[in-house]
């Protein structure tokens, strides 16, 4: 009889511990946050803007912003501060170019989800920008328990054993639009893949850090692509009749002589030398 009680007690304890462990033992889990530039600019699914000539006035004034996501502009892993820091990196790319007069980082609060080009026009008026660089993102994070996760049933294992692994795939894309003509001038993508493991107790914290790192790495990869695309765009518009470049009155000035002036100078110097002899 005593043996049966002991056996029953053992089974009961094992069952209680096991059921506790299932609280930590996640099955496969997927988390996604995304914002789409198409959803933002074409909320009613209207077709792309009709073909028209794009007039770009140099030096250009550029606005940079994250595209709000479709759920009300809230990205759970990216705080406004983090977004600003990432957009600052994009701003630094534009700042290198002398034909960019001003770059404004536009806070998310000014972008209405599914605001369309009407929202862009408002931003253009408010911030005085002609061109808008919209950074959209798509991040998906998978969480899979690994073989060590069976140790979670010991309770202590949930604190010390890294039985959860996450896999975070991020894509960011900077699309540069001329606000007036609604034309996409160029775009540059960046992707990243972050993998890591965590204990059950620390998983949320580690996974959040992984998501933030994913954004940072993807933006870091996007920067050189953006520089390449800007250089390519500069070359492309030379032969593209649909993009016309204008200059603000007196924006850039250069002092220069001409070839005849150089020849006159050379003749003058020769005559002076001849006179000396």
């Amino acid at each position: 009889m005593r043996f049966e009680v002991r056996l029953f007690s053992l089974i009961l304890v094992a069952a209680i511990l096991g059921s506790c462990a299932t609280a930590f033992w996640n099955t496969e889990y997927k988390r996604r946050e995304a914002s789409s530039v198409v959803d933002y600019l074409y909320p009613k699914g209207e077709p792309a803007a009709a073909e028209m000539v794009t007039h770009i006035t140099l030096p250009v004034k550029v606005g940079i912003a994250f595209v709000p996501d479709g759920r009300g502009g809230i990205s759970t892993s990216l705080s406004e501060e983090k977004k600003m820091a990432l957009l600052k990196q994009v701003k630094d790319v534009f700042e290198k170019y002398e034909y960019v007069q001003k770059i404004e980082i536009i806070p998310s609060a000014y972008l209405r989800p599914r605001g369309g080009f009407d929202n862009l026009q408002q931003l253009s008026s408010m911030f005085g920008v002609d061109v808008m660089a919209l950074v959209s993102y798509d991040q998906i994070q998978f969480d899979d328990p690994n073989a060590l996760s069976f140790l979670y049933w010991t309770i202590v294992g949930a604190y010390v054993v890294k039985g959860d692994q996450h896999d975070t795939q991020t894509m960011v894309d900077a699309s540069v639009f001329d606000i007036h003509s609604k034309k996409l001038l160029f775009r540059a993508p960046g992707t990243s893949m972050i993998k890591g493991t965590a204990t059950a107790m620390k998983y949320q914290e580690i996974a959040r850090a992984g998501r933030e790192e994913g954004y940072a790495k993807a933006v870091g990869e996007m920067i050189p692509n953006l520089e390449k695309e800007m250089a390519a765009f500069k070359e492309r518009i030379k032969g593209d009749a649909s993009v016309q470049i204008h200059h603000r009155q007196g924006s850039s000035g250069g002092g220069s002589f001409s070839m005849p002036a150089l020849m006159a100078t050379a003749c003058f110097a020769l005559l002076i030398a001849f006179r000396r002899r």
């Binding site: 007069q101 603000r248 924006s251 850039s252 002589f257 002076i272």
Partner: peptide, 30 residues
């Protein structure tokens, strides 16, 4: 002079301001 008298000019590059100065001096010497 460019800074104060030509406020619209945001950027400037070139050695021709100095070239014009030397040109004037050379012509005056002559």
């Amino acid at each position: 002079a460019i800074f104060w008298l030509v406020p619209d000019m945001l950027h400037y590059r070139g050695a021709s301001g100095i070239g014009a100065m030397l040109w004037m001096m050379a012509a005056c010497q002559m």
